[in-house]
Measured scan of single mutants.
Amino acid sequence: TRVETATETAWISLVTALHLVLGLNAVLGLLLLRWQFPAHYRRLRHALW
């Protein structure tokens, strides 16, 4: 059971790390998009709101 718990903890930390990386990538991607295409982003925002 100790090995199972260790594997579980490893999986949880792995999934958490993946989520963090994906979240960071999403934020960075959005920031890059805003920086690269400000006009396009503004138009998109007007369409959404």
Rank of each mutant, 00 (worst) to 15 (best):
T1E: 06
T1F: 10
R2C: 12
R2H: 12
R2D: 12
R2M: 11
V3E: 03
V3W: 08
V3C: 06
V3G: 03
E4W: 03
E4V: 03
E4N: 09
E4D: 07
E4C: 03
E4L: 06
T5L: 13
T5M: 13
T5S: 04
T5E: 02
A6T: 14
A6W: 05
A6G: 13
A6M: 05
A6S: 11
T7I: 08
T7P: 07
T7Q: 10
T7V: 10
T7W: 06
T7E: 14
E8H: 14
E8W: 13
E8T: 15
E8A: 08
T9K: 11
T9Q: 07
T9C: 06
T9D: 14
A10S: 13
A10R: 13
A10Y: 14
A10G: 14
W11E: 09
W11Y: 09
W11Q: 13
W11F: 09
W11T: 15
I12L: 11
I12K: 15
I12M: 13
S13N: 06
S13D: 04
S13V: 12
S13H: 15
L14M: 09
L14W: 15
L14A: 14
L14T: 15
L14D: 13
V15A: 12
V15Q: 07
V15W: 09
V15I: 11
T16R: 03
T16G: 13
T16N: 07
T16L: 15
T16E: 07
T16K: 10
A17T: 07
A17S: 05
A17D: 00
A17F: 11
A17E: 06
L18M: 09
L18C: 08
L18P: 03
L18F: 04
L18Y: 00
L18S: 07
H19N: 12
L20F: 07
L20S: 03
L20Q: 03
L20T: 11
L20G: 08
V21C: 01
V21N: 00
V21M: 02
V21R: 00
V21H: 04
V21G: 06
L22P: 00
L22V: 04
L22E: 02
L22H: 00
G23M: 10
G23E: 00
G23V: 13
G23L: 14
G23T: 09
L24C: 08
L24R: 00
L24M: 10
L24P: 01
N25D: 00
N25C: 15
N25Y: 10
N25W: 15
N25V: 15
N25E: 04
A26G: 07
A26I: 05
A26H: 00
A26E: 01
A26R: 01
V27K: 01
V27E: 01
V27T: 05
V27P: 03
V27Y: 07
L28S: 04
L28Y: 01
G29V: 10
G29K: 01
G29E: 02
G29F: 14
G29C: 07
L30A: 10
L30G: 09
L31Q: 03
L31V: 10
L31S: 04
L32T: 03
L32Q: 01
L32K: 00
L32R: 01
L32N: 03
L32G: 01
L32D: 01
L33K: 01
L33P: 00
L33W: 04
L33N: 00
R34F: 11
R34S: 07
R34L: 14
R34I: 13
R34C: 14
R34T: 08
R34G: 11
R34W: 04
R34K: 11
R34Y: 07
W35L: 04
W35M: 07
W35S: 08
W35H: 07
Q36G: 05
Q36I: 05
Q36W: 08
F37I: 04
F37T: 02
F37D: 01
F37W: 10
F37M: 03
P38V: 06
P38Y: 04
P38K: 04
P38E: 04
P38D: 05
P38W: 05
P38L: 05
A39F: 06
A39L: 09
A39Q: 12
A39G: 06
A39R: 06
H40M: 11
H40T: 10
H40P: 04
H40F: 09
H40A: 12
Y41A: 08
Y41G: 03
Y41K: 01
Y41V: 07
Y41W: 14
Y41N: 02
Y41C: 10
R42H: 11
R42F: 09
R42S: 10
R42P: 02
R42W: 10
R42Y: 08
R42Q: 14
R42A: 12
R42V: 07
R43V: 07
R43H: 04
R43Y: 05
R43G: 04
R43I: 06
R43K: 09
R43A: 06
L44F: 07
L44Y: 03
L44H: 03
R45K: 13
R45I: 13
R45C: 13
R45W: 08
R45S: 08
R45G: 05
H46C: 07
H46L: 08
H46V: 05
H46R: 07
H46Q: 08
H46D: 13
A47Y: 09
A47I: 11
A47K: 05
A47S: 08
L48R: 01
L48C: 10
L48P: 01
L48I: 10
W49V: 04
W49C: 11
W49T: 05
